[in-house]
C-alpha cells in the first residue's frame, strides 16, 4: 500500500532518516519502536509528507507523494493521521472538528455554482456520519462542546474519529498515548485495537510495548535513522537479534 524507497531526511548536517526502503502492506498493522531520536516520528511524518523527504520516494497508490508536482492534499485525504498532542481544532466544536474536512472536500468536488445549493445537504449528511462516529467512541453527548472541555483521552478519541471521518485507507499514529494521563491510555488503546481488528491498515509509533506486542503484525525497531531490526512481535520481543534492540528492550520491558 505504501512503498518507501530510499527515504532520506536531513536537517542540515544531521541525518535523521538514512536511506530507508520499506513496504507497508494493505491490512497490515506495523508498529515502530525505538529510542528517542531514532527517527521513528520523522519516518511516520514522511509517509504523508508532513515532513518533506530530502531524497527518496513514498509510493502510495502508484503515486510518488515526495514528488513536489503531486497534489499532496488529494492523497492526504486517504491517509489519516493521529497526533501525540491530539491537535483538535480549538475554535471548532467537537462535531465541527469531525465534519470540517469532509464537508470541505465534498463541496470542492462540485462545480462552483452547485456548491451553495448542495451545502445544506452535505452538512446534514456529514453531521449524521459524525454523530455515528461519536456514538461509536461513546461521546455523543460531547458533540456540541469545544475541545478544551474534554479530557485527554476523550480528545484523542475525537481525533481518531476525525481521521476516520475521511474514510482513510491507512491511519498513521504518532505516539497517540504519550501525552495522556496514565488512566486514560487504556481507552485510546482499546479504540485503536478495535480498528486493528476491523482490518484497518495502520502504522503506529509508540512506547507502549505491551500494546505493540498485542496489536502489531510486524514490529520495526529503528535506531540511528535506520530500521535496525524487524519481524513479528514474537521474534522482536522474544528473540531480538540486533544488539541495539536487545539493549533497548532490556531498558523498557
Amino acid at each position: 500500500m505504501i512503498d518507501v524507497l530510499n527515504l532520506t531526511k536531513r536537517y542540515g548536517d544531521l541525518t535523521v532518516l538514512d536511506d530507508i526502503t520499506e513496504t507497508i502492506h494493505e491490512g497490515e498493522r506495523v508498529v515502530i519502536i525505538g529510542p528517542s531520536g531514532s527517527g521513528k516520528s520523522t519516518f511516520l511524518r514522511c509517509l504523508n509528507c508532513m515532513e518533506d523527504p530530502t531524497a527518496g520516494s513514498i509510493i502510495f497508490e502508484d503515486v510518488d507523494l515526495a514528488d513536489p508536482k503531486v497534489d499532496i492534499n488529494k492523497h492526504r485525504q486517504h491517509i489519516g493521521m493521529v497526533f501525540q498532542q491530539f491537535n483538535l481544532f480549538n475554535n471548532k466544536k467537537v462535531i465541527e472538528n469531525i465534519t470540517l474536512a469532509p464537508v470541505r472536500h465534498a463541496l470542492k468536488a462540485l462545480p462552483f455554482k452547485q456548491r451553495r445549493k448542495a451545502k445544506k445537504e452535505i452538512v446534514a449528511r456529514e453531521n449524521e456520519r459524525a454523530m455515528a462516529l461519536l456514538a461509536r467512541i461513546g461521546l455523543t453527548d460531547k458533540a456540541e462542546v469545544y475541545p478544551s472541555t474534554l479530557s485527554g483521552g476523550q480528545k484523542q478519541r475525537v481525533a481518531i474519529a476525525r481521521a476516520l471521518a475521511m474514510n482513510p485507507k491507512v491511519i498513521l499514529f504518532d505516539e497517540p498515548t504519550s501525552a495522556l494521563d496514565p488512566e486514560m491510555v487504556g481507552e485510546v488503546l482499546d479504540l485503536i485495537k478495535e480498528l486493528a481488528h476491523e482490518g484497518m491498515t495502520m502504522v503506529i509509533v509508540t512506547h507502549e510495548m505491551g500494546f505493540a506486542r498485542e496489536v502489531a503484525d510486524r514490529i520495526l525497531f529503528m535506531d540511528g535513522g535506520k530500521i535496525a531490526e524487524q519481524g513479528t512481535p514474537e521474534q522482536v520481543f522474544g528473540n531480538p537479534k540486533h544488539p541495539r534492540t536487545q539493549e533497548f528492550l532490556s531498558k523498557v520491558l
Binding site: 504523508n48 508532513m50 492534499n73 488529494k74 492523497h75 492526504r76 485525504q77 491517509i79 489519516g80 493521521m81 497526533f83 491537535n87 483538535l88 481544532f89 470540517l100 474536512a101 470541505r104 472536500h105 481525533a159 476525525r162 481521521a163 475521511m166
Partner: peptide, 9 residues
C-alpha cells in the same frame, strides 16, 4: 498540521 493532514490546503 492537523488541518493539512486532513488534506485541506
Amino acid at each position: 498540521e492537523a488541518a493539512r493532514a486532513l488534506g485541506l490546503n
